[in-house]
Design a protein around this nucleic acid. Sequence first.
DNA 1: AAACCGGGGCC
DNA 2: GGCCCAGGTTT
Length: 370
Amino acid sequence: MERDAVSGEWVARFRRNVRRWYARGGRDLPWVGERDPYVVWVREIMLQQTTVTAVVPYLDRFLKRFPTVESLAGAESAEVLRVWEGLGYYSRARNLSRGAKMIVEEWGGQWRNTATELQSLPGVGPYTAGAIASFAFDQSAGIVEANTARFYARLLALRSDLHSGEGRRQLWSLAERIVPRDRPGEFNQALIDLGATVCGVTPQCQECPVRGSCRSLELGEVERIPARASRRDVTDVFELLVVMRRGKRLLLIQHPDGERWGGMWGFPALSRDRALARSRFDERLIESEVADWGCDVEFQEWMDEFQHGVTRFRLHLQPIVAMWRSGSWEGPVTAEWVGIDELATRPLSVAGRRVATRVERILRHNGAQA
DNA sequence: AAACCGGGGCC
DNA sequence: GGCCCAGGTTT
């Protein structure tokens, strides 16, 4: 059946219908027609697991700051992370830094143009490689991402889990047979736009240019395909964030690569198994635990606690302020005393930025009173 | 091939 | 709070 679905005649008609639809139904995205491989690469990395709406302002800002692969290769990783702050999945920014150095130093600044070669860049997998190859280099490489996967699954009425080996095999098989030799980048963009609009999560089949070929529409199962992915349970995490103050400086730690917020800066955390009671007893306990990091501190104040979701975790964060009295950081991760005025230049996690902003406000208020 | 990665926006 | 997002890497 799958073989019949992609006969030469079927493919030719499918392509004509998709192209005709795209001419009037395609989205007016800011990057339509972009061919610069560097710009396409940065854009596609940003779009991994991230909505177009979220990416647009970040891409604009990123390319203004790092307009060429050479400028990115020459930048400090912290500077790249600062531009990335708030977009999430920070390993992508570190991969861009590494990849830029690789392109400049190992490739001599010369881009490779096949999907296979492009996959050797860190953070570039089958989708991103196919996207760069087709958009920037006019290679007839197939693509499968969220929009095309949903579209293909409905088109062929695929019942397998799209993330399973079987599901992926079926999707990529179709993608590679369906992409044309002529203007493959434009065609791939058309497929994505079709999957993002007409064949979105809520399908609008009456507007679909290939509804006559859609197997799940024929079977009346468009609403049930693709199957919902199972979701992992949320795990609650309770942490106490210690804002250590020493004059006009705060102690920031750098989150290790491979852990939450890897590469970003933030405040040292004490793990708890539940929320704290804000008692005198807790205050003394905190002082004694901070002493294990080599710093003698005096508890100063409880700040407003807040929640922050990251992937499958729900963080319950309780920031406190403690005055440094003596000692130096001997904790398990890199740390630095950073001036209040310098906080704006450091890459902080969204939660860390929230705490930093509140501390700045508190200190300004106290300063005005003094 | 499944599990994990450990974010954030939108409704 | 549930659902989804122009995926990639690890085990």
